[in-house]
Design a binder for these strands. Sequence first.
DNA 1: AGTCGTTTCAAACGATTGTTTGAATTATCT
DNA 2: AGATAATTCAAACAATCGTTTGAAACGACT
Lengths: 217, 217
Amino acid sequence: MEDKKSSSKTRAAIMEAAGKVFAEVGYSKATIRDICREAGANIAAINYHFGDKKSLYIAVLKHYQEIAFRAYPPDLGIKETQKPEEKLRAYIRSFLTRIMDDVHPAWFGRLLAREFTEPTWAFDILVEETIRPSFQLLTEIVAEIIGKNSKERIVRLCSMSIVGQCLYFRHSHPVITRLYPGESFGFKHIKESTEHISFFFFARTHRRRKEQAFRGK
Amino acid sequence: MEDKKSSSKTRAAIMEAAGKVFAEVGYSKATIRDICREAGANIAAINYHFGDKKSLYIAVLKHYQEIAFRAYPPDLGIKETQKPEEKLRAYIRSFLTRIMDDVHPAWFGRLLAREFTEPTWAFDILVEETIRPSFQLLTEIVAEIIGKNSKERIVRLCSMSIVGQCLYFRHSHPVITRLYPGESFGFKHIKESTEHISFFFFARTHRRRKEQAFRGK
DNA sequence: AGTCGTTTCAAACGATTGTTTGAATTATCT
DNA sequence: AGATAATTCAAACAATCGTTTGAAACGACT
C-alpha cells in the first residue's frame, strides 16, 4: 500500500531531500520534519509513500547506490589488457570521485563514507550490494601487483590501506581546515590524491620520479 | 557550584560510565539515563556535578585525553638520535595503541577515532590540545624521511595517508567481519599493522624483505 | 455531474530526550 | 548533639522525536 512505485511528484522530492539531509547529519540526527520541510511536503507524506523512516532510508540508499555506481563504476576506464598499476589508479580515482562528489548523483558519497566508519542497521545492504563486489575487485588488482601467490591477509592489509586513505581524504576536511586554514583536499584535488595514493603503493623510487613531474605541472 | 572538583564517589563513577557510553554510541545517541544507570547514580547527579550534558562530555574528553597521552605519548620510545624510520614506526605504534585500546585508560581511543571522522562541537578542544601537537610531530618525522625541503603539501599528504590508514584499521571492524568472517585486525595485531603501514611508507624493496621475515615469525 | 480511489493536510498521540524542582538524606564542623 | 552545608532522590517539566488519525482536496473515469 505504501512501497509501490507511486511515482508522484512529492515522492521524488522526498527522496531527494532525504538524501541530502541523511548525508548531511546522518540517519539518527535527521528528522522527518526537516526532510519534509526541505521537500515541501507534509509530515505524513513519508508514512504514506514509504511506510516509515527506516524504509525511507533504505529506499534512498538503494536508489542513489544504483545511480552513483552507474556514474562512477569501480572499473571505470579499466581495460582487461591494461597494466595492473593502471587498473589500481583507475580504481582509486573512481572510488575517490564516488565518495567526494557532493552534487552529481548527489550525497551518496557522503552516505557511503558515513556508513563505512559508523555503520547503521542498514549497513548489511551496502556490504552485500556495493562494498563486497567493490572490495573484491580491489583485492584482485592488489594481488596482481604484489604477486598472485601473496598471503590473503597481506592482500587484505594492502587493500585496507588504500580504502583507509581514500576515506580519510574525504573525512579529513574538519581536521585540515582547523590545522591549516586555507588548505583543502576535496573534489578538485582528486587527481592529486589519486596520484599520491598510487605513489604510496607502488614504490619510493617510482614516486620520486613522478612526483617531480607532477610538481612541475 | 557544579564544575568544581567535588571529588565524590559518584562523580568519578559518572565520568567512567559516561566515557564508556559516549565511546560506544557517540555523544548524541548517548542518554544521560543510560550513563546514570551504568554509574548507579541518579539522573539529576549529572546536572549537579557537571551542569549539563555538554559540560560532562567536555570533562570526559579532557580527563581521558590526559590519561591516554600519559599512557601512550606520541614520542613513545623515540630517542632524538634514532633514525627517522624508527621514529615513524614508534609514532605509528603509539597512535594505533592509543586508538585501539579499549580497556586501559579506557574508551578514549574510540572517542578520539569517532571525533576524527565525525566531529562534534567539542572537536576544537581536541584539535588544539591533542591533534595539533600530535600531527605536528608526525609531519616533522615525515619531513625528515622524504626530505626536509619537500613541499609542505606533500608532507601533509603523506602524513594524512598514515593517519588515514591507522584510523581505518580501527574503523574497519564492521566491514571486515562481514566481508571475511573470522578475520580480525584489532588490538592484538598492532605490531602487524605497524609494520604494514611502515612498509607502505618506506619502499617496496624494503617491504618485500621484511615481510618475508615477518611471515616467517 | 457524480463516484471512487489516491493523495495531502492539520492536528494529535505516545515515547523519549535533557533539564529542573524541592524535599529527603548524608556528611561536616563547632 | 545540633546546626549547617553538601549530596541524593523521585517526580515532573518542556521540547522534540516518529508515527497515526480522519477529514479535506484532488484526479480519473463512466
